[in-house]
Nucleic acid binder design. Sequence first.
DNA 1: ACCTGAACACCGTTCAAGT
DNA 2: ACCTGAACACCGTTCAAGT
Lengths: 244, 244
Amino acid sequence: MTPRTPAPRSRRERPAKPALTYEGIVATAVRLMESEGLQRVTMRRLAQELDTGPASLYVYVASTAELHAAILEELLGAVDLSPAAADGEGEGDTGTGDTGTGDWRERLARLLGSYTHVLFAHPSLAHSALIARPSGPNYLALVEAVLSLLHEGGVPDAQAAWGVDVLLQVATANAAEHSARDRTAGAEAEHHALVAALRDASPDTHPRIAALGGDLTSGAPGQRLAWSFRMVINGTMTTPRTAP
Amino acid sequence: MTPRTPAPRSRRERPAKPALTYEGIVATAVRLMESEGLQRVTMRRLAQELDTGPASLYVYVASTAELHAAILEELLGAVDLSPAAADGEGEGDTGTGDTGTGDWRERLARLLGSYTHVLFAHPSLAHSALIARPSGPNYLALVEAVLSLLHEGGVPDAQAAWGVDVLLQVATANAAEHSARDRTAGAEAEHHALVAALRDASPDTHPRIAALGGDLTSGAPGQRLAWSFRMVINGTMTTPRTAP
DNA sequence: ACCTGAACACCGTTCAAGT
DNA sequence: ACCTGAACACCGTTCAAGT
């Protein structure tokens, strides 16, 4: 005598549990990361958020690593690629007269800065970006943008092809390092230990470290990163692919 | 009537459980990593190996991250620093006539190669090297060696001070990426997905990627890494610290 | 001071069984 | 085909209590 079907009203009480889809899972994962950090985006926690059991997720996602890569690809949509847009915006009078030689370099540094910024905004993600590189549309667009700026600058194709990797790697590694420093208490302590060790190195055993002194750790992170970008761009321009 | 003290013989049956020390803990951790991989070097597993409970380790080691950093510092002792030894070995007739200009560059690349090699031999470690940089004597010696080669090459101090970081970072990130590829099945699949995505990119939407084609992923890892080293060394030499 | 048992609050992944 | 309960085999870290 008990009704077999639940009262229709109960469907309106809360939004009906949506069917699982890859897109839905990733979207929920992004939300979860934004609110609780990547370290909480686990299969179990995510399943709980989706009102199901962890085993259900394995139908759509092969592993936790793949899940994290999918989140990164999603976030890469926020990278500002406009520095690479060489045309389109202002038709006739593009010449504002301000774009001297070297301008493409500055725009490339700005583009890479935007990429770094996105990683910084989601600290734990940079770390996973080094291991599981995404291959979705947003990542491809980023690679294309970097390549087009190198092309604009007249960097030989062969060098650009290999340089883009290093450029993105430097940006990613920097974000990973600094975001780890902010996040985990231990990482900050370890960085201080390194600074102290460099400061206290003896001129007898470590003459060069002693000679450079505080300069080894000088500069704001942003300044150092900007120099790194310029430096790798210059290196890419001037280093032929044939052995020296 | 049961004896309160264990029979002395039992002390000879197995080597008496050694007292815990920081050195002993780290040494056991290194052994454990060598036999089972870093992913098994957990506080619990290590405690088991030391015949104690995990809580006991926290007297000596603050966290798992610190433990991993200590292992890395230990392993850095295996890096071959001899390419940086500018003098001492052959006293009078140092001039074999073979050391042309650019030779310091080659030796620096060899030194960095040795560092990479050590990380590769212990795959899971490179990953943690990016986050928790060590600050022990072996790491300092590595930094000193790189700096002394840059000095030998006449690289301006300010540029060398910032360049050493990028140089080591590129080496570390490379090792992390490739070792992850070998280790986890998912990482290899993801790399293939990236290669395929680059290959299949449309010339309309991704003209530069299409133009470079297979060159984006060409070359053996060793070749690419060697080029990266040359490239970052060149960039460090030619990029002043003042804004462009 | 050093060490420990026990607990708290979690993990990833698999698989047989259900619908 | 898709979903799930339940289990297997683990984690890091803390803390009160012991020696």
